[in-house]
Design a protein around this nucleic acid. Sequence first.
DNA 1: TAGTTGACCGGAA
DNA 2: ATTCCGGCCAACT
Length: 85
Amino acid sequence: MRRPFRERVLNVVRKIPKGGSMTYKQVAGKAGNSNAARAVGGIMRTNRDPDIPCHRVIRSDGTLGGYNRGGAMRKRQLLSREGAL
DNA sequence: TAGTTGACCGGAA
DNA sequence: ATTCCGGCCAACT
């Protein structure tokens, strides 16, 4: 099904419960490609939807990774506030 | 159409 | 443990 990978990824991230975190690879896998972790990051970067808690998506190494609109610092605070830390 | 980029991953040095 | 290198994918110019 020719569905834009973008929408698929966003859809998955949107379903991430509060206090839960997913790695880029996990999201990519749910979107259909476990090897598209990089692409997922690129999508997140361009994405600007408040319904998409992209701050809940972290790297496989356990690090938070990057973030736009405040940087990793903001991301860490959001996760800490939700209890995902 | 082709080339470059990046919020990544995994393995090797 | 940290740093370097190649590889996969979608979006952007």
